[in-house]
């Protein structure tokens, strides 16, 4: 870990301004991913701005009937919030499927969105990795890629985004609210927040220098059957092979995002449109243009089967509701 200076910010605007003005500065909140990466010198900030004191840790109703989730709301608290459990069940489920109890107690809403990939080559600084060291190459091509992506990937990077929460947020059409170095807030739809790797896999999102996430905004509740299904080898405390986050209405329409297959939580309009037709069609739409590797090609049938099971589960939930 490189040495760094450390400061505690006193307001979001001040934090953003300080970050923009300080070379190689980074915000730290939960630290559960950043410190992990700093120990390996995958991240080497010269200055850390501790944003934990900024009070961005409440969940408030919005005038539109949705929720505004403070950037520092811990994963445990977001998952346990009564409104989230009632109205955004797939978000609770996604959060609870991630990491461990200890990590969820520290990890924040904003930090979760900004997690880096778990690609084993990204994690070993001695190996080429275009995301970590632009232009160095990609060892995952032809390497160990069972966990990695098959759609949205590029010649330079096949990493996946590891978050569970973000997949649910994507299905919910969440919006990221930020504050810039100039003190001005802006909102970015999550759908537009993440960049695909292309030839610049080191650029993962749309944030500008110094820009700080203040909140994530959920639109009004969607109702419907809400499902988050995470498939993994180990029963808990494991990153996903594939995940499915879905909100299914009684008429079979709905919205669905998938994780574990792409550099960002993956949502495709055509896949949503295909929901009434069934899992195979939805999966085909999601995986349009897929470039599987030999050891991750299984994710294609796995995704289709997982979506089919999720849709069946939705029907079952709705059947139960009808009965009661």
């Amino acid at each position: 870990m490189k040495a760094f200076t450390y400061s505690r910010a006193s307001s979001p605007a001040e934090a953003a301004a300080e970050a923009a003005a300080t070379p190689n500065a980074k915000f730290i909140a939960g630290g559960t991913n950043l410190l992990d990466l700093m120990k390996l010198q995958i991240e080497t900030p010269a200055h850390l701005i501790d944003v934990n004191g900024l009070g961005l840790d409440s969940i408030e109703p919005t005038p539109e009937g949705g929720l505004r989730i403070g950037a520092l709301v811990r994963n445990t608290d977001l998952a346990a919030d009564a409104r989230v459990r009632r109205d955004y069940a797939l978000l609770s489920r996604a959060l609870l499927a991630g990491a461990s109890g200890q990590l969820r107690n520290k990890a924040t809403t904003a930090g979760n969105l900004l997690q880096r990939t778990r690609c084993v080559y990204f994690y070993d600084p001695r190996q080429p990795c275009n995301k970590r060291a632009p232009g160095s190459g990609c060892a995952a091509m032809g390497g160990v890629a069972r966990q990695l992506g098959l759609v949205g990937v590029s010649e330079s990077c096949i990493a996946t985004h590891p978050s569970d929460m973000a997949v649910a947020m994507m299905a919910l059409d969440a919006v990221v609210e930020t504050i810039g170095a100039d003190g001005i807030s802006r909102r970015i739809a999550l759908q537009d927040f993440y960049r695909l790797p292309g030839e610049t896999p080191q650029i993962e999102h749309d944030l500008r220098p110094g820009e700080l996430i203040q909140a994530v905004i959920l639109p009004p509740p969607l109702g419907g059957a809400q499902i988050y299904r995470k498939v993994r080898d180990r029963a808990s405390y494991a990153f996903a092979l594939v995940t499915v986050a879905a909100v299914i209405q009684p008429d079979g329409s709905g919205r669905l995002a998938a994780g574990g297959i792409a550099p960002r939580p993956w949502r495709v309009e055509a896949a949503d449109a295909a929901l009434p037709q069934g899992g195979a069609e939805v999966s085909a739409a999601l995986l349009d243009g897929a470039r599987p590797r030999p050891d991750n090609a299984f994710k294609q049938p796995l995704l289709a089967r997982t979506i089919t099971a999720a849709l069946a589960q939705a029907r079952e939930m709705q059947g139960k509701e009808m009965m009661s």
Partner: peptide, 11 residues
Amino acid sequence: RINSCLSLAVM
């Protein structure tokens, strides 16, 4: 409960 390895003392 937290993982004390992933937290800076100064925090």
